[in-house]
Structure formats: C-alpha cells, structure tokens
Amino acid sequence: MMHRAALAAALLLPAALSAQTMRDFSTSRQLHGETRLIARVEYGAGTLRVAPASGSDLYRVAMSYDGERYAPLSAFDAASETVRLGLTSTGAGGFHIGSRRQLDQRAVITLSPDVSLDLTLQLGAAESELELGGLRLTDLHLTTGASRTTLRFSRPNAGLCAAAAISAGAADVSVLGLGNSRCRQVVFEGGVGKALLDLSGSWPSEARVRVQMAVGSLTLRLPRDLGIRLTLDRFLSSFPTAGWTRRGNAYLSPGYEHATRHLDLSVSSTLGGIDVEWVN
C-alpha cells in the first residue's frame, strides 16, 4: 500500500520544470588617468548594447543573465590594461541556445571615450546595437554568429583607427557610417545572410575597404562626394556597373577625379546580389 502511494506521489508530483534564474550583475571601474584600454567582449546569447560612456567610468556593464547557464565575465588586468567583459557559458556545451528564454538576457556596456580603445567583440546568437561613434578606437575586431547586428558610427572616431575587421556568420549585419570609424583598413567578411555597408562618414586619407561576401545579399551605400576606386571579383553575382567608369581592372565612381576624398574598395562575392545605393 505504501509502495503504491509512494509511486502515485512520485508520478503526480509536478515536474520540476526547467526554471530560469535571471540575475542582475553590474561591474564598473572608475577612470583614474588611464590612456589605453584593450577590451574583449564575449556575449553568447541575448540582447547587447554597446555605447560610449558619459560619466567618469573606464567601463561600465549592467546585465541581466541566466544564472543557470551563464556566468558574467569581468576581469581586468592592470598590467596589460586589458578587460574581459560579457557572458560565458558555465556548461561544457558552449553557447547552446536551448530555449527562446535564454535570449531574454540583456547587457549594456559603456566604454570611456577618453582612452585609446582596442575593442574585440565576439557575439553568438545575439541581437546587438553597437554604437561606437565618439570613442577613441584604435582597432576593432567584430565576430558575429547567427545574429542581428547593427554597428553604428554616428560620430567620427576621436582618434585614428588602424584596422577594423568584421566577420559575420549567418547574420544580418548593418554597418552605418563606416567612414566615421576613421579606420585606414576595413575588412568585412560575410558568410550567409544580409549585409548593409554604409560607407558614409569622414574617411581618413588612403583608406581601403575589402568586402568578401559568400552567399547572400550585399548592399553598399555609397556617398556621392566620395571618390571610389572599385575592384570586383564576383562569381554568379550581379553588380550594377552603370555610371561607373572602367579603368584597367577597376571601376571609378562618378566624379572620382574631382572628389576630395578617395577610397579603395574591393568587393568579392560568390553567390548573391550586390546592390548600390547612392547617398548625398
């Protein structure tokens, strides 16, 4: 009788439904005369916003995360001026997205505009809004997985950026005001998906942009006042060459000769369409 009751109780007890423990974590560091910061941001899943800090912080992070599966990253090494921020998986399975609830994770990271910044962002299944305009970027490395990412340079970079490398997997990526990054060399590698590259902004002289798109659609938003020398390498991809002037292996944008700023643009696309939008 007891056994039957125990069995019935075991069967009728409510299942321990997979509860999610959301936790709030924040970290910051006051600015104490630092001139340089190497920031490594890892973010597996959820919504991420990165923006310039407005106060006297070197960096500040506020996040809400799933305490069952993730742990916040917050490690600063004063000797190398390096900080690691973000979320790391606590399990061995990496950033496995088991349910849509995991995407409820949110993080806001602000970085000081007063220090030279070498920024690396590794994003997984994230929806990201990255406003890097106004920072003092020296290097940028952005890697995204299956994500929707908007990288924006609303204001010119306060310093000169040596290089920016953006690598997108199966992603929907928009890069707006790339010229404001003031990077001498920009490399964009797109896997599968959709990419929008807005090349407006104040480019430094002798800037070069290399775009490699595997499968997917690429939209290039080009400012009319920028003289662009375009080299194309495409396979089963369309490109509207009307209006461009052929010179050797390259195409010159309308008004290239009279433009005050020039940009070398190299586009390589395997399968998909390349659209061009001209903007003033």
Binding site: T21, M22, R23, D24, F25, S26, T27, S28, R29, R101
Partner: peptide, 11 residues
Amino acid sequence: AIRTLSAGATA
C-alpha cells in the same frame, strides 16, 4: 572594479 550581483530571481 566595482561589482554587484543580485539574488537570483527565479522565473
């Protein structure tokens, strides 16, 4: 560094 960690709020 300044850090805070809230108590877990289980859904």
